[in-house]
């Protein structure tokens, strides 16, 4: 952190004014935090209730039962395991491709002096301006033509590269000293070896950040899987949740249980590796 102390010089920490300010500050922050977190609590209590009603789930649930989860498990049209695996494959592959492709390009744009490098970088960056909606229809039609609807490759391929990842990794490789590469080349390493053995290990923190960020984005992605996956077996969790919603609308216990299953893994991962997530988020803010 750039600033180790949050105290401003001469900060007065005594007197009624300080205390009343502190109380107001805590009251505000806590109210906001409750607004942010209570919905998660309601989701949990509803999912654990047999007959959820507003009064019975608001604070402490009257009875706790796993019945909604069991029902989800038993329904033949609800393929929890399959959807979970689909989502892991989808988000995992998207992340793997992004890390591979973006680190290759980021490295080249930072460390290899080739013809047209800066223009290409500008070109990559300007693709960030294209709203996803514009390419949705043509990409879908191309994949129809390829017979890739309802396939993993159809889900994954259009998301396999991302200009933001290139930008992030290029900045990171740029910050690493060029002398390392020169030394390795004098030792007889070729470009690929230099990249793989010298620079890539040094980029681990940036890769982890980008990886988590990409994985989370794909895990939560709704629009693309909705369009390309038209059959139950190929749904990812968010699309499946939409299908469950349409099928079991107003069976709130069931729907909240399904929502929890999507939210759960991401939330647990977040609480375990909070700093990485937040770092990824603030790095994405550095684009500007």
């Amino acid at each position: 952190m750039a600033r180790s102390s949050y105290e401003y010089p001469g900060y007065d920490r005594s007197g009624a004014s300080y205390w009343s300010k502190t109380v107001v500050l805590y009251a505000l922050v806590t109210t906001g935090a409750l607004w942010m977190t209570l919905p998660f609590w309601w989701t949990l209590t509803t999912a654990l209730s047999a007959n959820p009603t507003a009064t019975s789930v608001t604070f402490i649930p009257a009875e706790v039962t796993a019945q909604n989860f069991l029902k989800l498990w038993e329904r033949p049209d609800i393929l929890l395991v399959r959807w979970f695996i689909n989502t892991v494959i989808f988000a995992g592959a998207v992340t793997a491709f992004n890390l591979t492709f973006d680190s290759l390009a980021g490295y080249a744009l930072a460390k290899i002096d080739f013809w047209g490098r800066e223009k290409l970088f500008l070109g990559f960056m300007s693709t960030m301006m294209i709203p996803g909606m514009v390419t949705l229809i043509p990409v879908y039609l191309i994949l129809v033509e390829l017979n890739w609807t309802n396939t993993y490759q159809g889900l994954i391929a259009p998301l396999a590269a991302n200009p933001f990842g290139i930008f992030l990794l290029r900045q990171h490789f740029k910050s690493l000293p060029s002398a390392l590469g020169e030394a390795s080349k004098i030792d007889g390493c070729n470009e690929l070896q230099t990249f793989y053995k010298i620079y890539l290990p040094l980029a681990k923190p940036a890769l982890a950040t980008l990886g988590i960020f990409t994985f989370m984005g794909a895990w939560n992605n709704f629009q693309w899987p909705l369009i390309i996956a038209n059959e139950n077996e190929m749904y990812t969790l968010p699309v499946a949740l939409f299908a469950v919603r349409n099928q079991y609308f107003a069976e709130w216990g069931l729907m909240m249980a399904a929502a929890l299953i999507i939210v759960g893994p991401v939330l647990i991962a977040f609480l375990a590796a909070q700093n990485y997530f937040i770092r990824g988020m603030s790095l994405s803010g550095m684009k500007g």
């Binding site: 942010m36 998660f40 895990w219 709704f222 968010p238 939330l267 988020m281």
Partner: peptide, 14 residues
């Protein structure tokens, strides 16, 4: 910070 960030982790569908 974690509390305020929690909704960000959520899929829009959820």
């Amino acid at each position: 910070r974690a509390a305020y960030f929690m909704p960000v982790m959520l899929s829009g569908a959820a």
